[in-house]
Design a protein around this nucleic acid. Structure first.
Length: 879
RNA sequence: GCGAAGGUGGCGGAAUGGGUAGACGCACUGGAUUUAGGUUCCAGCGCCGCAAGGCAUGGGGGUUCGAAUCCCUUCCUUCGCACCA
């Protein structure tokens, strides 16, 4: 056995061994005795951007640890890998380099696949898929058509960002400070026809079934529930007349109990009433235009000053008939509710500010436990629930009573009723882009929008186009666009839009079960593997990707394609990978960022940081704190460098050890060194035991030993081994892999300290104790290797084989998980902690067999206790 | 503004049910090995204090024999966002 730890060689050998044996190929097992439970472990598939980043390494290492652990625990595990291969960056790269997106994408996939393989992930590569292949996206098209048939896909206009110079639609990301990223031209809004998926039809179920996901983080479920946004309220019609016609201005409110305090109404700039009022009033028209400028992004809208303008139109209060003026408010969202609100300044903070600003009346109608009310300044309790006052016949009613009574009265008058409103909106999937799934529709002058027949699927995306930034190249490619109408045969045009890439990622986890099936979208294998038992990915996908995937799964269930309600049983959202940011500010205020690898840290005698200098010139650099790894801050670390310098095992070990999976992880070069040191120590200890003259492993690893007669040193070692094992099993169960690693480190420390004992015993005449010592060591090391295997599979694979464990237990991949020997946990004496009035006062050793009374006597007689109990002890708590 | 998560040594982080705060690792210090640097090994390492002991889990208060852990309050950080009517 090599005395030097050589990760390159052992990692290559391990991978070759796994490849040869097809160790990670996953096959469906027929029902029957001996059938293992299945475990589908999936990490979010990567976008093939060029090369792996640390976030990928972390994500896939977490998934791999779970995968390998479950294999050892007797599960039939599937861990596949795929590529989220459509998207904007490929088009951007194409523009920059003049290379078609397809070529760029496939090259990136090839490189990144190599990188993933070099990290030794236990992936079944036979199930690999890429969403840009026709064999995959044809089923996007197929399901789109099924949804169209069922009314789950429909067409309507939607608003997009328009770059007037490039004549192209821009993604939000391509709008920088209201201007096109390439042209710098102020962005305009444009209404264009788009296809929508009716996700709102599933709002109720998407919300309700969150309760059936105990394996999801509460945080994510809360976010989804808020996004779906179910609210119970009342839809109220404010009557008015327009051109002699009786009409209703509809608003939605969750505070119908405050209706008697409504003193104005406000509508969105896009509201029909606003448009009507603007026609005869140029000032109003200008205000409406002003509101329509600015960004589509609603987050930015939140930062705007609240502004309004009266329309000069009046509506009647639905209960009192009082005249109420209608305003246009830039804070009213057209997309939510009715695009209009009733203004209740008395009990809504925003309405209060609005009324103050524009001198509108404020009318308090709710009394909250007699707390004072003054229109001078807003107080938090004004918005609280209370009893109606100043509200005529509703006086004295509480929230629910008032809402019920008012809703009933409105219903009688035909002016409103209770209503449930959702925040969730339908999903617009049309993208005016080239590198995506073509939407399978043909536009015919006489037949209208005609679905492409199933027999003509897939509508194949040409792979040789190079976009130039001025619109969708598909629309300018006659060979793609021109075709005959499937219905009447006359010349017609293909839909040039492609689908949102979220469509691709909404069901790839299902396709992994049957990636080679070319007759249908799914087959029987899906029933075996779905649902995904464990899904792992970044928190940034907490809402959109996960919600769309849940929606698609439910649609596919409706079509009989899957039999599950929810795609992901358990979800783990991993934290981001951070690194320190270093910079220098030049005299002209320009900032240069330096990669942490180029920076040397200075410490004082106590280990405190006193500064940082650039290695190249020895002069100081400033720290800008810790941030996510990014190009702009030049604080990234390339995983490839790490793998080449230390090997995959060290990279994986550090990733798992530095922090628990769900927390952010701070990069640390010296932490990586520490991980590498640990693996070298492990290797050195094993090589020492194997190579020394009295080879401990010479007689095999068969351990049919009775440890009952073992000496204290053996018992101590076994106590560490087995108590740590029990902690590690607990930590594997709660995905706390950092303490799994620390457990393995503890075991190695104990084994290292124990190693000389084996030698000392030799020749002492006590041969049986020597055997027991060797056995305890062999047992401890065997346990330690298995504990560590999911994290660092290569080195443990090599040691397992070289030391002879494989001969006894079989390949480490499927070796049985070690069991805790309860007998090893038993100790004759226990250390007790003595507390007086909750304060630690001393320690005491006592026989384990001692009873409560005996312990009390011992404790009360103890120096550490008597010193503090001149008075009388009232209670004693035995720890 | 709203929502969520979080704040523990010089640093990353442990502490499973309210019961020894700081496991494991990094950094640092001293020593051994080495021609030297690096590596490796041994020892030390929360703060104050000569010691006894005291003080310590963002700050303040509370519950409890006992609080990092539970409650109230406050400050700060990070993430998400949709002025949600």
């Amino acid at each position: 056995m090599q005395t030097q730890y050589d990760p390159k060689t052992i990692e290559r050998e391990a991978r070759e061994h796994w490849d040869r044996s097809g160790a990670f190929r996953a096959a469906e097992e027929p029902p029957g005795p001996g059938r293992r439970p299945k475990f589908y472990c999936l990490s979010m598939f990567p976008y093939p951007s060029g090369k792996l980043h640390m976030g990928h390494v972390r994500n896939y290492t977490i998934g791999d640890v779970m995968t390998r652990f479950h294999r050892m625990r007797g599960y039939n595990v599937l861990q596949p890998m795929g590529w989220d291969a459509f998207g904007l960056p490929a088009e951007n790269a194409a523009m920059a380099n003049g290379v078609p997106p397809a070529k760029w994408t496939y090259e990136n996939i090839a490189y990144m696949k190599k990188q993933l393989q070099s990290l030794g992930f236990a992936i079944d590569w036979e199930r690999e898929l890429a969403t840009c292949s026709p064999g995959y996206y044809r089923w996007n098209q197929w399901l789109f058509l099924r949804m169209l048939e069922r009314g789950l896909v429909y067409k309507k206009t939607g608003v997009v960002n328009w770059d007037p110079m490039d004549q192209t639609v821009l993604a939000n990301e391509q709008v920088i400070d209201g201007r096109g990223w390439r042209t710098g031209a102020p962005v305009e809004k444009r209404e264009i026809p788009m296809y929508y998926m009716r996700i709102t039809a599933y709002a109720e179920e998407l919300l309700a079934s969150l309760d059936q996901l105990p394996g999801w983080p509460e945080r994510v479920k809360t976010m989804q529930a808020n996004w779906i946004g179910k609210s119970h309220g009342v839809n109220i019609g404010f009557p008015y007349e327009l051109g002699g016609e009786k009409k209703l201005l509809r608003v939605f409110t969750t505070r119908a109990d405050t209706l008697m305090g409504a003193t104005f109404c406000a509508v969105a700039a896009e509201h029909a009433l606003a448009a009507h009022a603007a026609r005869s009033n140029p000032k109003l028209a200008a205000f409406v235009e002003e509101c329509k400028r600015g960004s589509v992004m609603e987050a930015e809208l939140a930062l705007l000053d609240k502004k309004g303008m009266p329309t000069g139109l009046f509506v009647a209060h639905p209960i009192t008939g009082e005249k109420i003026e209608v305003w246009i408010g830039n804070y009213v969202l057209m997309a939510y509710g009715e695009g209009a609100v009733m203004g209740v300044p008395g009990h809504d903070e925003r309405d209060f500010a609005f009324a103050k600003k524009y001198g509108l009346p404020i009318k308090p109608v709710i009394d909250v436990e007699g707390k004072p009310y003054s229109t001078d300044a807003w107080q938090p309790w004004y918005a609280a629930y209370g009893r109606c006052v100043n509200s005529g016949k509703y006086n004295g009613l509480d929230y629910q009573g008032a809402v019920d009574a008012i809703a009933a009265d409105l219903k009688t008058k035909g002016l409103g009723d209770k209503q449930v409103t959702w925040r969730l909106r339908d999903w617009g999937i049309s993208r005016q882009r080239y590198w995506g799934t073509p939407i399978p529709i043909v536009h015919c002058a006489s037949c209208g929008d005609v679905p492409v027949p199933d027999s003509e699927l897939p509508v194949v995306l040409p792979e040789d186009l190079v976009p130039d930034g001025t619109g969708n190249p598909l629309a300018k490619t006659p060979s793609f666009v021109n075709r005959s109408c499937p219905k009447c045969g006359k010349p017609a045009k293909r839909e040039p839009d492609t689908m949102d890439t979220f469509v691709d990622s909404s069901w790839y986890f299902i396709r992994h079960a049957c990636p080679d099936q070319n007759k249908s979208m799914v087959d029987e294998r899906v029933k075996y593997w779905m649902p995904v038992d464990q899904y792992i990915g970044g928190i940034e996908h907490a809402i959109l990707h996960l919600l769309y995937s849940r929606f698609w799964t439910k649609v596919m269930r409706e079509l009989g394609l899957v039999s599950v309600d929810e795609p992901f049983t358990r979800l783990l959202t991993q934290g981001m990978v951070l690194n320190e940011i270093f910079y220098r500010k030049a005299s002209d205020a320009r900032i240069t960022y330096y990669n942490p690898a180029e920076v040397e840290l200075k410490h004082d005698d106590k280990g405190q940081r006193v500064g940082a200098v650039l290695r190249s010139d020895g002069k100081p650099v400033e720290s800008d704190g810790i941030g996510t790894m990014s190009k702009s801050k030049n604080n990234g670390v390339d995983p490839q460098d790490l793998i080449e310098k230390y090997g995959a095992d060290t990279a994986r070990l550090f990733m798992m050890f530095a922090s628990p999976p769900e927390q952010t992880l701070e990069w640390s070069d010296s932490g990586v060194e520490g991980g590498s040191r640990f693996l070298r120590r492990l290797w050195a200890l094993c090589a020492e035991m194997k190579n020394r003259s009295n080879d401990v492993f010479a007689s095999g690893t068969d351990l049919k030993v009775d440890f009952g007669a073992a000496g204290e040193d053996v018992k101590a070692l076994r106590f560490v081994t087995h108590s740590t094992l029990s902690q590690v099993v607990f930590d594997y169960g709660r995905y706390q892999y950092n303490t799994v690693v620390s457990g393995a480190m503890k075991m190695l420390n104990a084994l290292e300290a124990f190693e000389p004992h084996i030698g000392v015993a030799r020749g002492s005449g006590n041969e049986s104790n020597l055997t027991l010592r060797a056995a305890a060591f062999i047992e401890g090391l065997g346990i330690m290797l298995r504990v560590l295997y999911p994290v660092t599979p290569h080195i443990t694979n090599a040691l397992w084989k070289d030391l002879g464990y494989a001969a006894q237990y079989g390949d480490l991949v499927t070796a049985p998980w070690p069991t805790v020997d309860e007998a090893a946990l038993e100790q004759d004496e226990v250390e007790l902690v003595l507390q007086v009035n909750g304060k630690l006062r001393g320690h005491m050793r006592a026989p384990k067999s001692a009873g409560r009374e005996q312990l009390e006597q011992l404790a009360l007689a103890h120096d550490a206790v008597t010193r503090y109990t001149s008075g009388q002890a009232v209670k004693k708590v035995v720890v």
